[in-house]
């Protein structure tokens, strides 16, 4: 079960390649600048989330009773992101096609942009769910973790990754290129407010959950 340096490098390369391909595809919906930037940022999003959650994943796994070593947990968590990257990479031709053929956003309307983002969110959810099931099965078989416990561990990792990855994605945005509707496109927007005034991922979720009217959020910034 030991994963040597070459194995780790291969995992890293697969994550970078799969994530980079997918990033390129979603950015190409806008233009080549966004394509290359998203090709860099998307693997950063996946790897950054994995690194930031690494210690917490181990603590959660041990707390939930999975008899895994720290190295096992890192391997499983990074494996989850590698699987997501590879699956998304396989969907990149579809994303590229959809991005290049959607109705272009302009000053009057968003065109096919919302649908394009929606489809890609669906791809992310699909890749994440399949990777999750695969990882749960790997844990179950390789480490003889009972199914229920294995599922609890992986679900806790998923929740943590969503909470951290969501904020990292918010900070690294734009991936799809909507920000370039006006002016020079930035590499990343950081904590710049969205059109609804949200300044972080959690505020976006909060606005979505409470169904708040974006008009309420004009703050003069």
């Amino acid at each position: 079960m030991s994963l040597g340096r070459h194995g780790a490098l291969a995992q890293l390369a697969a994550t970078a390649a799969g994530g980079g391909l997918y990033g390129f595809a979603i950015g190409a919906g806008k233009n080549l600048t966004y394509a290359w930037r998203s090709a860099v940022k998307f693997p950063l999003l996946l790897l950054g989330t994995a690194v930031l959650c690494a210690v917490a994943c181990f603590v959660l796994a041990r707390f939930l009773g999975a008899p895994l070593r720290c190295l096992d947990v890192q391997r499983a968590a990074f494996g989850l992101f590698r699987n997501v990257a590879v699956m998304l990479g396989s969907l990149s031709p579809v994303s590229l096609f959809l991005g290049r053929t959607m109705a272009r956003p302009d000053a009057q309307s968003l065109g096919g942009y919302p649908a394009f983002v929606g489809v890609n969110m669906l791809f992310l959810a699909l890749a994440g769910s399949v990777a999750l099931v695969l990882q749960a099965r790997t844990l179950l078989v390789a480490h003889r973790v009972p199914w229920r416990r294995s599922a609890a561990v992986v679900v806790s990792w998923l929740l943590l990754s969503l909470l951290v990855g969501g904020q990292l994605a918010f900070w690294l945005r734009p991936f799809f290129g909507i920000a370039s509707l006006t002016g020079e496109p930035p590499f990343l927007l950081g904590d710049e407010p969205t059109v609804t005034g949200a300044r972080n991922f959690y505020e976006v979720v909060w606005q979505f959950v409470t169904g708040a009217d974006p008009g309420d959020y004009t703050r003069g910034r």
Binding site: Q167, L168, F170, W171, R199, N200, Y202, E203, W206
Partner: peptide
């Protein structure tokens, strides 16, 4: 990465 948000 999180600015002093108005809500969160």
């Amino acid at each position: 990465t999180m600015a002093q948000g108005d809500w969160i």
